[in-house]
C-alpha cells in the first residue's frame, strides 16, 4: 500500500467571488488498493473536489488555495497539456451519465481504443487484442466492440465507460456517482465489478456518491462533506455506525433502511448550526 494522492487545504471559489468558498480547506489522502468515498448532499462540494483533482474545474471557478500531490508530485501548477498526459493514463475517470459521456457516432470499440492510441501508441492487431481483453474484463461480449452506444443498455454503457477508464491501467480511478442512473440490480453488478478491478489492479479509487448504502458496499474510508467542508473522516464502519459529527448523525437519521425499523428524522438545520456555534465557542 502506498500513497497515491495527497490533497491539502484545497479551496475552490467562483472566479469573480473569492469570499464564497464552495470547497473550503479540504485535506485528505488516498492509498493504492483502497476506496475512499466522498459522501454529501447536492451542493456539498463533493464533485468539485473530484474535478479539482483532475484539473477539470469550469472556467468560472478557481482553485484559490491548496496543494494536490499525485504520486508525490505537485500537479496544481501543471499546464492543461501536461495534465492531459496524466488524465486518462494514470488517473481514470467515470461519470454519472453513461449516455452523455459517450460519443453517439463512434463505435464503443473505437472509443475504448482512443486512449490506448493516444497514451500508449497501440495500433492494428495489438490495439484490437487489447480492446477485446478490456471488454471481456468488464463483462461485455467482445463482438459488441462494433456497436454504437445507443445499441447498448444503461448498464452496458457504464461498463464501456469503465473499460475506457481502466484501458491504460491507471493508478487511480475517480468515479463520480457512476451508478446513480442505474437500476439497483445493475448497480450491484457495477459496484462489484469496480471493487474487483480495484483489487486486481491495486488501484486507488475516489468514489463520489450521495447514497449511504453504496458507501457501505464499496468504501474503505469515508469523507463526509457539508457546505464545502469535510465534517467527518474515518473508516467506513466508524462513520456509518459510530458517527461523531452532528451533521453525519443527522444525515444518517434521514436514510431509510431496508428493514423499516428506523424512525426517519429530517435534518434540523437550525439546531445543527447552534451545535456548531456552541462547539466553536
Amino acid at each position: 500500500m502506498s500513497e497515491l494522492l495527497r490533497v491539502q487545504g484545497l479551496t475552490v471559489t467562483p472566479a469573480n467571488n473569492p469570499s464564497k468558498k464552495l470547497v473550503n480547506n479540504v485535506s485528505f489522502t488516498l492509498q493504492s488498493g483502497k476506496t475512499t468515498c466522498i459522501v454529501g448532499e447536492s451542493g456539498s462540494g463533493k464533485s468539485l473536489t473530484a474535478l479539482s483533482v483532475m484539473g477539470l474545474l469550469a472556467a468560472s471557478l478557481t482553485r484559490a488555495a491548496g496543494s494536490i500531490q499525485f504520486l508525490g508530485n505537485e500537479i496544481t501548477h501543471l499546464s492543461n497539456h501536461e495534465l492531459s498526459h496524466i488524465r486518462g493514463k494514470k488517473i481514470g475517470m467515470i461519470f454519472q451519465e453513461p449516455m452523455t459521456s459517450l460519443n453517439p457516432v463512434l463505435t464503443v470499440g473505437f472509443q475504448i481504443g482512443e486512449s490506448l492510441t493516444v497514451h500508449l501508441g497501440l495500433k492494428g492487431d495489438a490495439l484490437k487484442a487489447r480492446i477485446v481483453a478490456l471488454l471481456e474484463q468488464v463483462g461485455i461480449p467482445p463482438e459488441r466492440a462494433n456497436a454504437y452506444p445507443d445499441e447498448l443498455s444503461g448498464g452496458q454503457r457504464q461498463r464501456v465507460m469503465i473499460a475506457m477508464s481502466i484501458a491504460c491501467e491507471p493508478k487511480m480511478l475517480i468515479a463520480d456517482e457512476p451508478t446513480t442512473a442505474l437500476d439497483v440490480t445493475v448497480q450491484a453488478q457495477i459496484l462489484a465489478l469496480l471493487d474487483e478491478l480495484k483489487t486486481r489492479m491495486n488501484m486507488g479509487m475516489l468514489f463520489i456518491t450521495h447514497d449511504f448504502g453504496v458507501v457501505a458496499d464499496i468504501a474503505d474510508d469515508v469523507l463526509v462533506m457539508f457546505r464545502g467542508e469535510i465534517v467527518e473522516a474515518g473508516s467506513v464502519a466508524d462513520v456509518l455506525y459510530k458517527p461523531q459529527h452532528p451533521y453525519t448523525k443527522a444525515l444518517l437519521d434521514c436514510v431509510p433502511d431496508a428493514e423499516g425499523k428506523k424512525q426517519l428524522k429530517p435534518i434540523d438545520y437550525a439546531w445543527l448550526e447552534n451545535a456548531a456555534l456552541e462547539k466553536a465557542a
Binding site: V184, T185, Q187, A188, L191, D211, F212, G213, V214, V215, A216, D217, V236, A237, L240, Y241, A258
Partner: peptide
C-alpha cells in the same frame, strides 16, 4: 431485487 439493495449485505459485518 431485495439482495441488490445497496449496503444491505455488508451492514452486519460493518
Amino acid at each position: 431485487l431485495l439482495k441488490a439493495i445497496p449496503g444491505r449485505a455488508k451492514q452486519h459485518s460493518l
